[in-house]
Design a protein around this nucleic acid. Structure first.
Lengths: 373, 373
DNA sequence: CTGAAAGCGCTTACAG
DNA sequence: CTGAAAGCGCTTACAG
C-alpha cells in the first residue's frame, strides 16, 4: 500500500512510519500494490523470469505453459509494473517533456498535438508544462533529475541553453533559435511572411503595412524580415511608419492598427504577424470605419478554427505546427544530445484565402482616402 | 551505457563541462552525472549525511563546517539529485498529472494555469497531457505506474472512474461529475447559465433561444438546465425548437444559429453554451443579415481575451476556471484517495457586459421578421 | 529452460 | 555528531 503523506516541500521530515512493516510474509490479502515478486510467488518462478516474460524478452526461453502461468498470475493480481523502479534500473524514463510559456496561446495546442503523436509512435509519453510560474531553473532541474529523457522548449523564454547543456540530457528549442550551439527546429517564418506579403502584392496592393510581433520574439523578427524582403523583391520598400510593433495579442493588434492608420493613411493592406493580433486588427479597422476587405485587406500568420468565423473570415497562412512538434520529438528520440540541430520544418505552408483579402479599392471608388482624412 | 560501471575513484572534480563543444568528429566526453556518493567522497563524509544535509533534515545534527563542506562539494560537482531514485525510495514522485481531451480548447489553459500554480505552492510539479491519441487505459497505466502521485481528468472522456479507482491512487474529475462514487469538483454551470439568461431577461428579452453544447458533455446538460430554470422562474418556457444542439465549436455555432433562426424567427436573444460556439453565432447572425445586438443579443459562457475584440465585442459569463484547477490540485494534495469529493467551486462568476447584448428591438422598429425571410 | 545475484541512486531507522 | 546497512521494485548479465 502506498503511503499517502501530507505534501511536503523538498526539505522536510515528519517522522513518518515505516514504509513496509516487515521484510517477509506479506499478508495475502494486503491492499498493497502487487509487485513482481508477488507474481513470481503465485506463478512459482523467479522474479527474473517474470520480468523477462512480461517484457517479452526474445532471449528468454521458457516453456509455453510456464509463460502462461506467469501471464495468468500477473493478470490475476492486477499487476502493473512500477515505472519508477524500471526507470531507475534502466536509467531511462520513457517520458519527454515539453515546456511553453503559456497554454493560452492556441498555436501551442497544435505543436503539442504533433509532439504527443510522435512520442506515442516511439513508445514514449509526452508531458507538458508551462513555465509562467516556474523559473527557468526549475525546468533545468526537471531535465537533470532523471524524470524525463529529453526536453522541448517552445516559445520565447529567457535563454537557458547553457544551463540545459549542463544536464547532459537532450533538449531542443522549437521555433526559436538557440543563441549558442545550434539545437533548434524552426518554421520558415520568413517564408510565411513572404507568402503572405506576396499574396497581397498579387492582389494589386502597393501600400502594405505590417503589424509586427514583439521585438523579443525570434519569430517576429523573421516575419518582419520576410515582409521586407517580399517588398524589396517587388521593387518596393516599407517606410518605418508602415510597421507598428505589437505584442501578439488582440489588444495589441487593435492598438497597432490604430497607430498605422493614423500615420500611413494610404495603406490598402496589412500583413499581421499573428492571428490573435489580427482579431484586434479587424476590430480596430471596423472601429475606424474601414470595411475589410473593401478598404483594407488583412492577412495573418497562423490559422485557427475560429478564423473562418471571424467577420470577415480571415485570410491566413497555415503553418505546419503539428509537424514542428512531431519533428521535435523525432529528433530528441533519434539524435544524440551533443549533435548540432539546425533544421527548418519542410512541410508546406499554405495560404488559406478567405474574405479578409481582396484587390485594393480602385482610386476614386469606395471610401477613398477622403474617408480617412 | 558505459557510464554506469566504472567505480574508479579518480580525482574527478571538474564541474560539468558546459562549454559549447563544437561537436565535429570526436564526441565530447560527457562526464558521468555526479551521484550522492561522489559528493560524499569529496566532502569526506557518508552518503547518508550528505542526503540529510542537502534535504535540510532538522534531525540531523552536524557541525556547521561539515555542512558547509557538503554544500560546497555538491555545488562544485554540480550535483543534482536523481528524482527517480528518490521517488522509488520515498514512494512518492512529487508530480501530479492533468489530462484533458485536447489543448486546443482555450478554457483548459486557464484550468492548467490554476493547477500549476497550486502544484507549485505545495512543492509539486504538474504535468499535462491530452488523450486524443492515447486511449483511456494509458492514462490509468500512468496513474498506476508510480510516476505520478495523482491525476486530474478534465473534460468529456469515456468514463473511467472504476479503472482509476483500481490504481489506489488519488484522482479527480474536473468540471465533470463521476458516475460512481463522487470524485469531482465542478463549476456552477447551471448558475452561470441562469446568470446569463437572467441578464437577457432583465434587458427585456422575452423570446430567448439557446445554442447548447453536445449531449455527451456534462457541462452542456447543466447549462441547459440553468437556462430552462431561469426561464421558468420568470414565468416563461422555452419550446424545444428554441434550443439548437451544437458541439462547442464555431462551426457548430454558426450552423445552430441558422437552424434556430429558421424555426424560431421571433427570437431576440440567444444564450450560447460556450464562447467558441458564440463566435460562430455572431458569424451566422451576420450572414443572416441580423445585426447584433440590434436585432439579436448574444451572450456566452466563458470569457476569452479575444472576446473583447470580436465584432461586436461579446458579452460573456466569466467562470472561475483558474480556481477550478487550483482546487483540483489542492484536493489531490489534501484528501485521501478514498474520500468522497463533491464540490462546487465557490468563487463568483461574473457577467462581462460588452456590446453583444442590449434591450430587444422595439416592436415595429428595426429589422422585424420581414428581414429574415 | 530457470534462478541467484548485483545494482540503479537514493532515504532513513538505527547504532555507535 | 556521523556511519553502516537495509531496501524501494525493478532488470539483466551470468551461471547452472
Amino acid at each position: 500500500m502506498t503511503h499517502r503523506r501530507p505534501p511536503v516541500p523538498v526539505a522536510q521530515t515528519p517522522p513518518q512510519g515505516v514504509q513496509r512493516a516487515s521484510t517477509h510474509g506479506a499478508p495475502p490479502h494486503s491492499p498493497r500494490r502487487p509487485r513482481l515478486s508477488d507474481v513470481a510467488a503465485l506463478a512459482g518462478v523467479d522474479t527474473s523470469v517474470v520480468s523477462r516474460a512480461l517484457n517479452a524478452d526474445p532471449k528468454l526461453l521458457v516453456r509455453p505453459e510456464t509463460r502462461q502461468r506467469i501471464l495468468d498470475a500477473a493478470s490475476a493480481l492486477g499487476y502493473r509494473p512500477n515505472a519508477v523502479a524500471r526507470s531507475l534500473r534502466r536509467s531511462t524514463s520513457g517520458v519527454y517533456g515539453l515546456a511553453i510559456p503559456s497554454f493560452s496561446n492556441p498555436i501551442y495546442a497544435e505543436i503539442i498535438s504533433g509532439a504527443e503523436r510522435a512520442a506515442t509512435s516511439v513508445g514514449k509519453h509526452l508531458l507538458s508544462s508551462s513555465f509562467t510560474d516556474a523559473k527557468p531553473e526549475s525546468l533545468v532541474e526537471v531535465l537533470g533529475s532523471g524524470r524525463i529523457d529529453g526536453l522541448i522548449v517552445a516559445g520565447t523564454t529567457p535563454a537557458m541553453d547553457v544551463l540545459l547543456d549542463g544536464t547532459g540530457e537532450p533538449w531542443l528549442y522549437l521555433n526559436r533559435r538557440s543563441p549558442g550551439r545550434p539545437r533548434h527546429v524552426v518554421l520558415d517564418d520568413e517564408g510565411a511572411a513572404r507568402l503572405a506579403t506576396t499574396h497581397l502584392l498579387r492582389l494589386g496592393h502597393e501600400r502594405i503595412g505590417h503589424v509586427a510581433g514583439p521585438e523579443v520574439a525570434d519569430t517576429a523578427t523573421r516575419r518582419r524580415s520576410g515582409f521586407l524582403a517580399a517588398l524589396r523583391d517587388a521593387g518596393m520598400r516599407a517606410a518605418a511608419r508602415d510597421i507598428a510593433v505589437a505584442d501578439y495579442t488582440s489588444a495589441g493588434g487593435a492598438e497597432a492598427i490604430g497607430r498605422l492608420l493614423a500615420t500611413s493613411r494610404d495603406l490598402t493592406a496589412v500583413f499581421v504577424a499573428n492571428v490573435a493580433s489580427a482579431v484586434g486588427v479587424l476590430f480596430g479597422a471596423d472601429r475606424a470605419g474601414l470595411s475589410v476587405p473593401g478598404d483594407l485587406s488583412v492577412i495573418a500568420i497562423h490559422d485557427l478554427p475560429m478564423a473562418e468565423y471571424l467577420i470577415p473570415p480571415l485570410t491566413t497562412v497555415r503553418m505546419p505546427l503539428f509537424e514542428l512538434g512531431r519533428r521535435g520529438v523525432d529528433i530528441l528520440a533519434s539524435q544524440p544530445a551533443t549533435a548540432d540541430v539546425d533544421e527548418v520544418v519542410s512541410e508546406p505552408m499554405e495560404i488559406v484565402a478567405r474574405a479578409s483579402t481582396a484587390p485594393p479599392p480602385r482610386v476614386g471608388a469606395g471610401r477613398g482616402l477622403a474617408t480617412r482624412r
